[in-house]
Amino acid sequence: MEFWRIPFDANEIDITLGEVYILDDRCKGCGYCIEFCPRQVLQISDKFNKKGYHPPVVVNPESCVNCHYCEVICAEFAIYSVEAVSCPNKN
């Protein structure tokens, strides 16, 4: 993330990482999760699900900060994110 001014404790803050799970067969392809993801993690895929819709696909997994917005905006209970545990000795 680019900061206009870098906070003093930017190096100490651990940004949460998330991992997005998509239940393809529940998706109806409305695209809300793709449009409103603040970190552009998702993209519409070319594949079809059982009902003939294009579910989203994770294209940018390391950008996800586990904000759960895709989970709360999804009308189909088809997407959710869980916290990915980052290793403490990161550089």
Binding site: L17, E62, E76, F77, E83, V85, C87, K90, N91
Partner: peptide, 27 residues
């Protein structure tokens, strides 16, 4: 980039315990 431990794939949506899953996808 920090190395990341991926948790085991969790197959349930957090609200799955409050919805009738057999009725999903809804109308």
């Amino acid at each position: 980039m920090a190395s990341v431990n991926r948790p085991n794939k969790q197959q349930n949506h957090p609200l799955d315990d409050l919805i009738r899953k057999d009725r999903i996808p809804h109308i």
